[in-house]
Design a protein around this nucleic acid. Structure first.
Lengths: 349, 349
DNA sequence: CCTCTTTGTCGAAACGGTTCGACTAAGTCG
DNA sequence: CGACTTAGTCGAACCGTTTCGACAAAGAGG
């Protein structure tokens, strides 16, 4: 009488058994065209929609995926739009297949594990996407035990299905641009080593140098936390001890700090030193000068993570990692080297 | 045998009926201390946790709240950390009371309504938080029909429970700071009028002027989309026609455009013109000069939205709007007016 | 000592779906 | 025409919990 209509109401109105109504509503083949139509019409008339929890209970599928976000890279998630773009991509992939996304945010590793554990045990999601897999090992156990598929965003230290930017390529492309501008002594501003993306980007830097026949100088590889202030200090220190005409930074916020360090040292960007960084955000786009950057497509990261996850959920089988390319966006922080201008052939696309 | 333990397993192991086990596990008073302990111990032994969907089906509570985000203010949500901060606050409030958050993102008004409708009808959330209530009326109907409590983030055009920044106060505080710096002709760079926050901030601007006995000059109130480029154009145009020594912008990104316009017109910030904006983000903090801003606390917006929502869910009763104060953060874009320095008494907190 | 409450426990009936095995009425085949 | 498949439908069981009404035992009041 009062509440929403149930499948029983629909069945009654269509003059069929409940089971038949269920079959018809779910498009199962064994119902005759005629009954199917009657049932569908009845459902329409009653403005019926199935109760999510009841479905879940009956067939064991929650049609929900959990996004687990241990917020270890504070800056990345709270400041830039990274997270939002990720989420939008995830959400799109999920809705495409009738799934919804639920959140599990945690401020510490412990909290994240507790959240995951709870979610897995109450069977409130069919699978999980986990960002920031700095310490992935401990997670995996719980998932395996409960047969919950997992996809990581960002390459985890150990074997697991994941989606990530092709970080080697990302920095390779950026550094190559600098080389093509004629720079020969290129500093590399890295982030904390425990992140695989930092490791990979360093590799891309070395690769680019190697390909160009340039020497790899340990002294030009610096490391700082992912903040403008930390980057500033490191670059000031580097300036005092080394000569170079360009810098590649693994994050936009670090690049901002670097640019400030140059400015405070009386060096103009790009006239005296060129800068390329990863991530083309408002922060880098509207800094002065606008920074040439390798843009990442986080929405696609999220999208593919969910696609992979859903595949795993349905097929009960593991899948392969997916690597996404970055895209060089040439803005105002790079210029031909003044020291020695060689062929400059950067594709301005 | 195979699956996770159910409450039946727990009951059996504790030697009680299923119903008693349920009572004990949920801390209901009518179980004896002794049985309660036996049940709890059994649950512990079996590593039991209740099946979320089953609970939901039985008692009708999903213990989930839906976050609906019609992404109409593109910039706000995809670029700044706004959304992430909001989410973290929401998540915190939700987990505090054993709730989880599920996402419903939409790229258009229509899509958002469809998403909401589906969520409401499948009874997959106990209530909803809706951001960007530009066109709220159409939403409300669906919710009311299904008795789903809703809290808006941002003041909607029509009556409803909501949480918002105290936008009048936000700009009042910022403008007052400029006035205290001695500025008498202060331009106001507004956003699209259909947003209530723009309306309210303009009001705050007028209030501040009035309180200081300064005239309100229509010609100094400009309007642009929420992008740096749009702001740039509007400010260039304004510069050509009006004299002023300070500007208040309703968003950080617009302020960035304005600063650029000043620079390109040969005006130094803050020496020639002071700038204050709303929202103290990386973008404004690391621009040159760092912008004096009124910081908003989006995490608290999210937090209180959920608190209010949960209150409404539990008490079955409507609640009152909550307004959050902003906080003036003095950075490098404001300086005493050169024209006529009056008492400068800004609280540098 | 008998009745009336209180306390603790229990079985059974929801909640709203899906799925499985059984059944009937048509075809199909030889 | 009888035996065998097949298509379509149905009733019942099940998913894992909560909740309600019944009930026995114990304690209180007269």
């Amino acid at each position: 009488m009062s509440g929403s209509p149930t499948i029983r109401d629909v069945a009654k109105r269509a003059g069929v058994a409940v089971s038949t109504a269920s079959l018809a509503l779910n498009g199962k083949p064994q119902v005759s065209q005629q009954t199917r139509l009657r049932v569908l019409q009845a459902a329409e008339d009653l403005d019926y929609s199935p109760h999510a929890a009841a479905k879940n209970l009956a067939d064991g599928r929650t049609r929900t995926i959990g996004l687990v976000n241990p917020t270890t890279v504070e800056h990345l998630f709270t400041s830039s739009g990274f997270f939002m773009r990720l989420i939008r991509g995830m959400h799109r992939a999920a809705t495409e297949e009738g799934y919804s996304v639920s959140l599990h945010i945690a401020d510490s590793e412990e909290e994240a594990k507790a959240a995951i554990r709870a979610a897995v045990r109450t069977r409130s999601a069919d699978g999980f996407v986990i960002t920031n897999p700095t310490v992935s090992s401990s997670y995996l156990r719980d998932f395996k035990r409960h047969r919950a598929p997992v996809v990581f965003i960002g390459r985890p230290v150990e074997d697991a299905v994941y989606v990530d930017n092709d970080n080697v390529e990302v920095s390779r492309v950026g550094v190559r641009h600098l080389i093509e501008c004629g720079h020969r002594r290129i500093a590399f501003l890295n982030g904390p080593e425990q992140f695989t993306f930092c490791h990979d980007r360093l590799l891309g830097y070395r690769t680019a140098l190697e390909e160009a026949g340039l020497p790899y100088d340990q002294g030009l590889v610096w490391r700082s936390e992912q903040t403008a202030e930390a980057a500033y200090e490191v670059v000031r220190a580097g300036l005092a001890e080394h000569r170079f005409s360009a810098l590649f930074a693994v994050s936009g916020i670090q690049a901002v700090g670097a640019v400030r360090a140059f400015r405070d040292s009386g060096l103009a960007v790009p006239d005296d030193v060129s800068v390329v960084c990863v991530d083309d955000t408002e922060l880098t786009r509207y800094s002065i000068p606008p920074l040439t950057a390798v843009a990442l497509h986080e929405n696609w990261l999220g999208y593919w993570a969910v696609k992979l996850l859903l595949h795993a959920i349905k097929m009960q089988t593991a899948t392969y990692p997916v690597l996404l390319p970055g895209e060089l966006v040439i803005r105002g922080s790079t210029a031909p080297s003044r020291e020695r201008v060689t062929e400059v052939s950067g594709r301005r696309g």
